[in-house]
Design a protein around this nucleic acid. Structure first.
Length: 656
RNA sequence: GCCGCUUUAGCUCAGCAGGUAGAGCAUCACCAUGGUAAGGUGGGGGUCGCCGGUUCAAAUCCGGCAAGCGGCUCCA
């Protein structure tokens, strides 16, 4: 019997049934046989020993392929486990494998958990094992044998029992055996470039009701230079972290003595925030939204009616008992407030869509372990809006919102994001509003709208709100954690619960649909995000101080500096004169470390011919410019929401 | 909330075989009046996160709590 293997270049070759991947690689060329790390057979990662028993497409992976890194990191995880087993014979093991940027292994040790202090010893032992360069063999073993191998280990036992079939494909190095990998390197010595990074708790199988294991994180590469670069990248994350920059640039602080998760905005941060708030209100008003103000406190009944109390009680501040039977609640969400606005008048079908928006302050009692700088706080101001539409207006309104969102991203130079369609979890429907037809219909509606617009997205089950599916715009923080930047949520439930109606053309009452949407998230989270993507160098229109004027000589040039300041202030530019009794170099250094967009120096030459010496942030040197030219350029830049004077392009893109 | 680690001056950090604290930057004063990334000298500033225990004596050892950090869970 022979099988036909197709290669990436489209060519096909016959092989004996049961030929292994390595032999196929060798048959192509000796060098490929040497370089081969694993294969990809019909899209599935396979190790070199794997016998091929059917026709299919095969790609031989070398260390140039991205998937080869998966094999390497899986191998590193395997070697770590081998060392752990040898070091702590009583240790129990959870899962362990490669991740997007490294590998991990979950452990549970009765005689004291592994801590960061143990990592260097473990690393040394791994190095030793790697140097011994033993062969890693693929073996098929019975579940029985594996169960004996991991006797007394409840986690491994459950993993073994979860395997399909009687025999489990496993890998063996010396007398250590482990399973759950698709492909590993053939020689332990090939996994010599790695590092152990950290230890963190992780629930067994990701369930918080399960015991917590210790997860050991590491990363591995084929070349030392790649590892060095990666370690450097990890250490540079701190320079981009909004908490570090927030302190350095004096944007905000959180002081546990006056309240964990309750940020204080310093003048610099407040300036950025105010600028963004004015911007987004203007954009939304221009897009047909009516901005309102509603109270941060409401009768608890409001949240009982909306369902928030039922679903999120644990994450809400406890109600205030006013003593006369009234219970007041710090609002955790604005939607019920905007529903009150809608209900305050009788609504006609002619008015819809009605778009209500607010920079609404909310309070949520986030768990202490979840708090993080401005990214997770207990008091936040949400760029919130609710549009009330007729069912036939849903798709159009969805597109309107999306258009606004992308246009706003353009003004902030936000380019790194993905769309996620968030559906309910079909395995766990009791968490959600109970109406199968509604879910199926609205999920299909969202998908249809995205397909219509030709936008790429991925689908995620279990990420919906309890009242409806949503489109989330996902991005990443400096640390690489996922974060929702914007969201559009379809809601058929709240209108039901609050008996919302409008009078139709037929004179009858009809139920509107609510669309919840947030364009720039909360002010807190958005500014944290911007701080990270700009690395603290805010574009001119957002920068707390836009121009810093440094007079060469305090006696001779301050007057001219003040004339310039007056002119800039008249144009609404945020400008400061550095009148401190310090040397120029000192002031320039500080202006640069504070990432002020423009530092201008004025001395005799500038006074004489009405110029300024301009040094933009991060520029190596200054250039002299006519004062009026500089002024016009800065003003234009601020109006274009940028530092480069470019115009918004997203609107044109979607405006078809 | 859970696991691990951490908490000393405004910031970054040192001190920790137990004897009530140091550096650099910042701040203040004085000198220097300087043309594009830190000029010099001097001064002030901390009940060492909080509470309790061991001890003649605790920043240092032990326990509890809180907060921060890295994750996990959660995130309307």
């Amino acid at each position: 019997m022979s099988i036909s293997i197709e290669f990436p270049d489209g060519s096909k070759k016959p092989f004996d049934d049961g030929v292994n991947v390595l032999d196929v690689a060798k048959s192509i060329s000796t060098s490929l046989g040497k370089k081969a790390i694993a294969g990809k057979f019909n899209g599935e990662l396979v190790d070199l020993d794997r016998p091929l028993k059917q026709d299919g497409k095969l790609a031989i992976l070398t260390n140039q392929d991205a998937d080869a890194l998966v094999v390497l990191n899986d191998t590193a995880a395997f070697i770590l486990a081998a060392v752990l087993k040898q070091t702590y014979p009583k240790m129990h093991f959870g899962e362990g494998h490669s991740t997007a940027d490294g590998f991990f292994y979950d452990t549970d040790n009765a005689d004291g958990q592994v801590t960061v202090n143990d990592l260097s010893t473990l690393k040394e032992k791994m190095m030793k094992l790697v140097k011994a360069n033993g062969e890693i063999k693929r073996v098929l073993v019975s579940k029985e044998t594996l169960l004996k191998e991991f006797a007394g280990d409840p986690y491994k036992e459950s993993l073994i029992n979860a395997e399909a079939g009687v025999e489990v494909p496993a890998f063996q190095l010396g007398d250590f055996i482990d399973f759950g990998y698709r492909a590993l390197l053939k020689k332990a010595g090939e996994a010599k470039v790695f590092d152990l990074l950290s230890v963190a708790g992780a629930y067994w199988q990701g369930k918080s009701s399960n015991p917590m294991l210790q997860r050991i994180y590491g990363t591995a590469f084929y070349k030392q230079a790649d590892l060095d670069a990666d370690l450097k990248r990890r250490s540079e994350i701190k320079e981009r972290d909004h908490r570090t920059l927030g302190r350095e640039l004096d944007l905000f602080f959180v002081d546990p003595k006056v309240g964990a998760g309750l940020p204080y905005w310093m003048p610099n941060g407040a300036t950025i925030r105010r600028t963004i708030e004015r911007y987004i209100i203007d954009r939304e008003v221009a897009a047909g939204y009516e901005h309102v103000y509603t109270p941060v406190l409401a009768n608890l009944d409001l949240y009982k009616q909306s369902g928030h109390w039922d679903h999120y009680r644990d994450d809400m501040f406890p109600p205030m008992d006013m003593g006369d039977g009234e219970m007041l609640e710090l609002r955790p969400m604005n939607c019920p407030s905007h529903i009150q606005i809608y209900q305050h008048h009788l609504r006609s079908y002619r008015e819809l869509p009605i778009r209500i928006a607010e920079l609404g302050m909310m309070h949520r009692y986030e768990k202490s372990g979840a708090l993080s700088g401005l990214q997770r706080v207990r008091e936040m101001t949400l760029n919130d809006g609710h549009t009330f539409v007729r069912p036939d207006q849903i798709q159009d309104e969805f597109k309107n919102i999306l258009k606004l969102m992308m246009s706003v991203y353009d003004d902030f130079d936000i380019t790194d994001y993905t769309f996620r369609l968030s559906y309910r979890d079909p395995q766990n429907t009791e968490k959600y509003f109970d109406d199968d037809e509604m879910w199926n219909k609205s999920q299909a509606m969202l998908k249809g709208a995205m397909d219509d617009l030709g936008l790429d997205y991925y689908e995620a089950e279990g990420e919906a709100a309890f009242y409806g599916p949503k489109l989330d715009v996902q991005t990443k923080t400096a640390l690489g954690n996922d974060e929702t930047l914007s969201t559009i949520q379809l809601d058929f439930m709240m209108p039901e619960k609050f008996h919302l109606v409008y009078t139709g053309e037929d004179g009858e009452e009809h139920r509107p649909v609510m669309i919840h949407r947030g364009v720039i998230s909360t002010m807190e989270r958005f500014i944290a995000y911007l701080t990270e993507i700009y690395k603290g160098a805010f574009p001119t229109w957002l920068a707390p101080t836009q121009v810093d004027i440094i007079p060469v000589n305090l006696d001779l040039h301050v007057k001219y500096a003040e004339t310039i300041q007056k002119q800039l202030l008249a144009e609404g530019i945020r400008v400061k004169i550095d009148k401190r009794n310090e040397k120029m170099g000192y002031k320039i250094r500080e202006a640069q470390t504070q990432k002020i967009p423009y530092t201008i120096v004025v001395g005799d030459q500038e006074v004489e011919d009405a110029t300024v010496s301009v040094r933009p942030y991060s520029a190596e040197k200054a250039e002299r410019e006519d004062l009026n030219v500089f002024l016009d350029a800065v003003v234009a830049e601020v109006h274009n929401y940028s530092r480069t004077g470019k115009k918004n392009k997203a609107e044109a893109k979607l405006d078809k």
